[in-house]
Amino acid sequence: MSGSDRISAYADALFEVARAEGSLGRVEDELFSVARTIETNDALRDALTDQAIPIERRQGIVEDLLGGRASATTTALVGFVIAAGRARDLAKIIDRLVEKAAESRSEEVAEVRSAVPLDDDQRERLASALSKHTGKKVSLKVVVDPSILGGIVAQVGDTVIDGSVRRRLEQLKEQL
């Protein structure tokens, strides 16, 4: 089994568990946040993928991190992947799961990075605007990323729409 197939297999398994638990939408959002956190936090990623640390200890880290802030299903699924020794592929597995969930709703994942959290009205308007812009129904996944300074960055498939202050500053830098 190739690496891609293995990731799809784990994503399918997690997807089926979340759907069976009846909390696919919430678990999907929570897992997406976990994946982005692992991507941006080197220390956390190193700790979860370090083979020298016992699996129980790494699962303990996950429980300490997500306990009380995420659903039990989400915590259990992340712990399952780490126990299987696939912590290094966790982010890819979650991304594949999110894509699969969106496909099940005939939607496409729209990853949105914002410097501040979006309220429900902004989420709804942004999803509508992105659907209109891309011609596809989108499933909005918002990641709070202060590094973009302000505004938002939306990515739907291969299309990136960058309206961040960081991007404006980079354009200014290029002009200078």
């Binding site: 509508s128 605007a129 209109k132 302000g150 505004g151």
Partner: peptide, 14 residues
Amino acid sequence: TNRALIDGYIAELE
């Protein structure tokens, strides 16, 4: 200000 920026971006996208 950030919210205003985001609203402006969404309006531009719309």
